[in-house]
């Protein structure tokens, strides 16, 4: 059996319905467990105090904000090449989840930055890149919403996703270049991986795994909703044809 069998909407719905309960429970356990572990059973950072603990939300959300776009890119490519409807719908379903993750990352970052840097926002390359990513997500979702014909929308958004990915990478480099320009060098950097000791890392890994599972289950769930919506549209169209 080939993997493309899952591109059959019926098969997709059946399989995803079977795995979703497990995924819901697993992601909930991992995220809640990881957060409790991180919030209550790790010491305060000697420099940052307890504010560092927002890392358990911030880093996993940031991770998924980028990976969601990656997943959309892959799904768009599959639609462009193999024209499986489920793939296009999965890309559509992932975008709002990606927006939510980006927003969580930006907001938790601001909450963290206020006590640490004394400012809610700084035009640090990392922060700026996330803001730009957020704009790309907005454009992508807006294009889906603007087009009536679902196949046309799938085609156009796929190409936008491909082109957008190239420009998103370019923007990342441009932003890196830009903030070492006339401005003073990046005095605020938050490179989580480097300054996280093991004792913080284990709950962080737990939360990240939880967020990955949460993303997967949300996308499966939302794709199912999109498939059902398409079915309703198709049934209405069929009724018109019969009349």
């Amino acid at each position: 059996m080939s993997i493309w069998e899952y591109a059959n909407p019926t098969k997709f719905l059946r399989t995803s319905a079977r795995v979703m309960p497990t995924l819901w429970v697993a992601s909930a356990v991992l995220i809640i467990g990881g957060l409790i572990w991180g919030f209550f059973f790790t010491p305060d950072d000697f420099r940052q105090g307890s504010t560092v603990k927002i890392i358990y939300l911030h880093v996993p959300a940031a991770l998924m904000a980028i990976n969601a776009w990656f997943m959309m890119l892959v799904a768009s490519l599959i639609w462009v090449i193999r024209r499986h409807h489920v793939s296009a719908l999965a890309a559509k379903a992932a975008a709002p989840v990606g927006i939510a993750m980006t927003l969580i990352a930006l907001i938790t970052g601001a909450l963290w930055g206020q006590p640490m840097w004394g400012t809610w926002w700084a035009w640090d390359p990392r922060l700026t890149s996330f803001l730009v990513l957020f704009l790309f997500y907005l454009g992508y979702v807006a294009l889906w919403e603007a087009i009536d014909n679902p196949d046309t929308a799938a085609d156009l958004t796929s190409i936008l996703c491909l082109v957008g990915s190239v420009f998103a990478v370019l923007s990342r480099y441009a932003v890196n270049f830009w903030n070492q320009g006339l401005h003073q060098g990046a005095s605020l950097s938050l490179d989580a991986e480097k300054n996280v000791a093991d004792i913080f890392a284990y709950p962080l890994w737990t939360c990240m795994t939880g967020f990955i599972l949460l993303f997967i289950v949300l996308v499966l769930y939302r794709t199912g909703t999109e498939i059902r919506q398409r079915r309703i549209q198709a049934l209405v169209a069929r009724e018109k044809l019969e009349a």
Binding site: L135, F136, A142, L143, A146, I147, I159, F167
Partner: peptide
Amino acid sequence: LTVGLRRGGLLLSLLVMPLYVPTLIF
């Protein structure tokens, strides 16, 4: 991308602006 759309103008700006970011920065 937006040629056949009603209210295409506003959407066009929303889609094109992020693509302009690298050019504007450099």
